[in-house]
Amino acid sequence: MEGRKCLGNRGITADMNVVTVEGLDRIYGSGRTRVEALMEVSFCLAPGELSVLVGASGSGKTTLLNMIAGFDHPTGGTVRVLDQEIGVMGETALALFRRQHLGFVFQALNLIPTLSATENVELPLTLLGIPRSARRVRVCELLECAGLRDRAAAMPGELSGGEQQRIAALRAVAARPKLLLMDEPTSCLDSSNTADLVGLLLDLNQGEKICMLLTTHDQRVTRAVPRSIRLVDGRIADGQD
């Protein structure tokens, strides 16, 4: 790591981890129905780092992403994002934190059906109160980068699955978050669309310096990403710091 170097106007420094997970447990149910989804998970993600979470189905990948995003609460341990402990934040505080610092791409059906492609990408910027002209410049830049300029006015129902996922990725990075989480973003895509999306993610990671963590079963994605964290039965098998 370099010395403390300010990366932007939100007070994050180069030696501050974007994500710090320590001794994270997530246990569902009790007694005979007890399921240990995550046990003693610890790792860190540095600013601009691109990592992939791999593991069999049910190994806890999605649960871990949900913990980091604050969609679910830990049974034990802590998750810190940008030095904020996620598990103790209230719903409103979490929403405001996500709005400013976090992007999320789900497996499918990511777009708001009542908003066009442009409006979907624009949504986080609108929530942050950014003026319309600045929003439009940013959205045009992103659509251009993803090769979707001609689909700007299309409604989600008029977009292909691949286009929807790319629009979702653009929306997730529109507000220049410090962390982008993606839960199997390529699982519903064919190889051509997967390649397009992975290419877009790599471009965004390099261009926007966003720390990215995604889950996948796709070897092509895993190969394209520098760091892999493997989960087996809710525990990190390799890739831990």
């Binding site: 995003a69 929403a95 709005r99 999320f104 059906l109 708001i112 059906p113 986080p124 929530l127 942050l128």
Partner: peptide, 12 residues
């Protein structure tokens, strides 16, 4: 849709 909105930053 509501889940997506909350994930994007909509408060309760």
């Amino acid at each position: 849709e509501i889940g997506i909105l909350k994930a994007t930053g909509f408060t309760p």
